[in-house]
Structures are given as structure tokens and as C-alpha cells.
Amino acid sequence: MSDDPEPTDPGHFEIYTFNTGTTTHSGTAGESGIDFNYGAAPDLQLTATLPAGFEHIAGGGTNIGMSNVELAAKYRFLHQDAFGLDVSIFPRVFLPSGSTAIGDNHASVLLPVWVQKDWGGGWSAFGGGGCVFSDIRAADFCELGAVVTYQVLPKLQLGAELFHQTADAHGTPATTSLGVGWRYDLDDNYHLLGYVRRGVENTNETDRYSWYVSILFTF
């Protein structure tokens, strides 16, 4: 859920094919899609995410359709070698889904700041947060997250995350969750990513458990 401030290297691509979802007492909802990232210039990454959404209502049917297309730009304006931390802004626009059942049929924008600090021995920490603003409300909700990672093996990285989101505009209560994730590098171009988490606040209503799996292509 938390992001890091490091943009894609200039002239290179990072492409994620992903599936993600969350289960609550109301059912299960999630997305599958492709997340394109391109290093457009030094310290500048352009992003486009094309997701299809699904929602299975407990005791009911299943809805499937296009979810909210996302357009974003990450810009790193401070560096660890000079400032001690990498710091980036990563504004993200969510286009209306056009559906009353899948995604949000209103436009919105996330305005976050992300920071990172690396240490010797394979340790790293990153996190930050921001708020989502929509075309119908001044502020829908805010989120804050922090991650610690460790390079266990040359090809394997593990991490743990603490994440919090305030109550959103649809009446869902605030949620806090704990998660663990991993990244395994098959080679320089193909990578496997996974993540699972569980809510520790308003668990039944917001996050009994969640998952994210992805194949990452880098070139």
C-alpha cells in the first residue's frame, strides 16, 4: 500500500501484471490489470494503471467491469547523498470508472509525499502518505504507511508494513493493517512479488485479509 520515492531509471520500463483484493464481512473486491511505469527523465517517472475490477457480495452475485484508470507522475526532488533522505511527490489521478458497481464513478486525485532511507547490510525503510480529493468532496480520506525491508538473499527481499487509512466518504470506518511482502528476482528482467495483510482495526468491516501478487518486467 505504501510507495517508495525512487523513480524508474531514465529510458527504462517497469511493468507490473497484478492481482489484488480485500475480503470483509460484506464480500470480496479487487482488481487485476497492468501497471506501466517509464523513466521519462532523471528523477521523473510517468505511470499509467489499467485495471479491471471485480466484486463478490457475500450471499449475492459477482460484478465485473473496468475499474478506475490511474495516471501519475513521480518526481524525486531530494536525494540521500545530499539530504540524507530520498523524497518524492507522486500525484495520482483516478479517472471515473463509468460503473456504479465497480470502482468509483467520480474522478479523484491522491496527493502524497514518499520518503526513503537506506542503510548498510541490506536494510531500507520507506513510507509517507497523503490525502485523496474528489470532484464531489474536499477530502475523501487520508492514508499513512511505513515499510521496513531487508535483503535476505541476493535475489530475495522481505518487508513488513504498517498502514492506516482514515474513514472514507462512503461511511467505511478507519482501518489499520499489518502486512508482509516479498520480492524474488528471477533474473535482471523478471521478478515475482507478493504481499498479504490483515486489519487490526475494524477488521470485519475493512480488512479481514488482503493480497497482492505480481509479475514485474524490467527493461
Rank of each mutant, 00 (worst) to 15 (best):
R183Q: 14
S26D: 15
F219S: 14
N37Q: 06
V109G: 06
L193G: 02
D9K: 14
N68F: 03
S177H: 01
G122Q: 07
E205D: 15
D35R: 12
N105Y: 10
D140K: 02
T8F: 04
A58Q: 11
S26I: 00
A48S: 11
G33E: 04
W123G: 00
S99E: 15
H25P: 02
L46T: 09
G65H: 04
Q45H: 13
F219P: 13
D188C: 11
L44C: 10
I215D: 03
W182I: 02
W114H: 04
I215W: 11
S108N: 04
H79L: 07
W119I: 10
S26M: 08
G103D: 00
G11L: 09
A29Y: 14
P154C: 12
L216T: 08
E143W: 12
P96D: 01
T206H: 03
L186G: 11
S124R: 09
H106W: 05
L78P: 04
Y209M: 02
G33I: 09
P96A: 11
T203V: 15
L216S: 04
L156A: 10
K74W: 10
F83Q: 06
I102S: 03
A41S: 13
T149Q: 00
Y195T: 07
L193C: 06
L216Y: 00
T49N: 06
F126V: 08
T17R: 04
W123D: 07
D207V: 01
T28Y: 07
L193T: 06
V132E: 15
P112G: 10
S124P: 03
A40M: 15
T47D: 03
S32W: 07
T62H: 05
R76G: 00
S177Y: 01
T166D: 04
I57P: 00
